[in-house]
Amino acid sequence: MTTPEPSAVAQAAAAIVDAFAATDTERYFAGFSPDATFVFHTEPQRLDDRAAYERIWQEWLSAGWRVVSCSSSDSLIQVFDGGAVFSHTVDTTVHTGDGEESYRERETIVFALDGDRLVAVHEHLSPFTEAS
């Protein structure tokens, strides 16, 4: 196996964040493996593949949802043989059918090497809480 370069992980993560920020469905989901799993604190259960997330995404879009802004900070990249873990703080503003909402979350994306390409195989979002 091969250990990816941290710069390649940063580029793969930035591509996902940038596509999300643009509400670019095709480009966003291209960063994820078809069998990627997703754990979102806003959803009642784990999404067991990309198709499950794509269905929810389409429901959001149909309701008038779109991303207004999304920025990443405080990132950490941990590489290992065959993949990497990317974690960061993400600040997002979305437009919903009822107006705009902003939130801060912590996100972890696990990447695996697929040939010479890094592909996301798991994403986990949790609410950001300030330390006491």
Rank of each mutant, 00 (worst) to 15 (best):
F128R: 08
V39D: 12
A14Y: 07
F86I: 03
I77G: 09
A36D: 01
E26F: 05
W60L: 15
A21D: 03
A19D: 03
L61M: 12
M1G: 15
Y103C: 09
V68K: 02
V94F: 09
P127C: 09
R50F: 04
T42S: 13
D18G: 09
S132K: 14
A51T: 14
I77V: 15
I109E: 00
P6K: 12
A36P: 02
A51F: 08
Q45Y: 10
D48K: 12
G99C: 02
D49C: 14
F128A: 09
V79K: 01
A30P: 03
T37Y: 07
A36W: 04
A63K: 11
H41I: 01
R106H: 04
F40R: 00
S33V: 06
C70D: 03
P44A: 08
D18S: 08
R66L: 10
P4M: 10
M1F: 12
D48C: 10
V17D: 06
T42Y: 11
H95R: 15
A112H: 10
S126C: 06
T2G: 07
S69I: 00
F111R: 01
E101W: 07
V39N: 10
E130V: 15
V110N: 03
S132G: 15
S73T: 11
F128L: 13
F29H: 05
E43W: 13
F111P: 01
P127S: 12
W60Y: 15
T93G: 00
D116I: 08
Q58D: 14
R50L: 01
V85A: 09
S75P: 08
V90C: 09
T37E: 06
G82P: 11
Q45V: 15
F29S: 03
T108C: 11
P4F: 06
D74T: 05
P34R: 12
T108D: 04
F29V: 00
A8R: 10
R46E: 05
Q11K: 07
P127L: 13
D49K: 10
P6D: 10
L76V: 15
S132V: 13
T89K: 13
D18F: 00
F128H: 14
T23I: 03
L113C: 13
H122L: 00
A10T: 11
L125N: 10
E101I: 12
T108K: 04
D98A: 14
A12D: 01
V9M: 07
A112V: 09
V110C: 05
P44W: 08
V39H: 09
E5F: 10
